[in-house]
Design a protein around this nucleic acid. Structure first.
Lengths: 216, 216
DNA sequence: CGGGATCCGTTACGATACTG
DNA sequence: CAGTATCGTAACGGATCCCG
């Protein structure tokens, strides 16, 4: 029943921060951009205390950014349309953060939902995307990339659709490539294993290369 | 000597939030986009406690976003090049925040540095900008808009350059227009007084109209 | 076992008073 | 004017406990 701490300024930036400015709020939203997630997915992915996650989830729900669907008995959280509109904010934050020195003593996340949104936004900037469904394995996590000319989606986990191609890489290298510390070529040839669907290799490498190279 | 609270995650978004995610940090940066400011300018503009402003300023300085120039004996804070690169983040936050319901019980800011950055970013999106220097009076605050084809700047306060045109409006209407609650035409004809330099009126109105209308 | 709620020590924030 | 010092309050973080 305690009133939440707010700026209460007229300006839209302060208004936005009143909703997504609290600690963890944007990171939770970011992870949900990778698709619906359960309580524990978010907890282990972020390393957030359960009480904080709980309060953030209700606050974000009240603000209309996320919603809880208890369809099959087990709670699942997902973004609303309003919540999905945070993608530009997150994208610009990501671009700004890439210019900063990385933490000297980083903490590994419990899962890699983290990278689904940046990946999608990079792919989104590529013109003339091919029609392609890719299963991308990063360490022990799996992503399904669904590319078409009109749209592109990156979902965490295996989805029902059968992929055209399956590839594997590791998290560190993926980050290096995404932030420009290694070249697309070096990444593609050295750190990307094509496991299945090799006949789509050229299409896939062109897509990845364009995504990394593109100014954003 | 206590270690600052950080996410310490590898992802660039978390890295960005470790620097500009603290309460007030982004709003301070936003106000500095309006040009150099003194301690008290920021305090009254935001309504922030002085101890918090003090710690934020040193943190932002350590992070390399701002710098203090004590040239004439009086401390003046201003953005560094890195700090200026927050403009895209702030712009997207502003766009997101405009979609949210305004606070039911808002608090008036002590000054209007707030709106310099949104205004500049709106103008920046206008193609074929005219060469024009405008003094815009909003309530008791003054802005100097320097427009050219290549670039546009909005500084808080009167600058040395003599304006081609001087106009006046009020804060509420300005916000209404910027967030699309009233039309550019309605704003220009009803709530914008041309005080001086009337021969540049058409040029100015075209610029303002385009800025408001433009998708951003 | 997943999905939280409760408790409690620590840190951050906010208001005000005070100092160079 | 530009901060520092103090102090009460709110938020965070870790752990444990509870409930279906």
């Amino acid at each position: 029943m305690t009133a939440k701490r707010r700026y209460r300024l007229l300006c839209p930036i302060a208004r936005a921060l009143d909703v997504i400015g609290d600690r963890w709020a944007l990171l939770i939203v970011r992870d949900l951009h990778a698709g619906p997630a359960r309580f524990q997915d978010l907890e282990t992915g972020l390393g957030i205390a359960t009480n904080l996650l709980s309060t953030r989830l209700t606050e974000l729900t009240e603000a209309g950014l996320i919603e809880k669907s208890t369809d099959p008995g087990r709670a699942v959280y997902q973004l609303t349309e309003l919540g999905r509109r945070t993608d530009s904010v997150l994208w610009e934050l990501s671009r700004f953060g890439s210019q900063l020195d990385p933490d000297p003593d980083p903490r590994e996340p419990g899962n890699l939902r983290t990278i689904a949104l940046p990946l999608r936004l990079m792919l989104q900037a590529v013109p003339n995307r091919p029609n392609l469904v890719v299963r991308l394995l990063v360490d022990d996590d799996s992503f399904t990339i669904t590319s078409s000319t009109d749209d592109v989606d990156v979902e965490y986990g295996d989805t029902s659709t059968e992929p055209d191609l399956t590839a594997r890489t590791d998290y560190e290298r993926f980050l290096d490539a995404g932030e420009g510390r290694i070249s697309p070529d070096e990444f593609a040839t050295q750190y990307l294993d094509i496991i299945d669907g090799a006949d789509h290799t050229d299409t896939f490498l062109a897509l990845i290369g364009a995504a990394i190279t593109h100014p954003g």
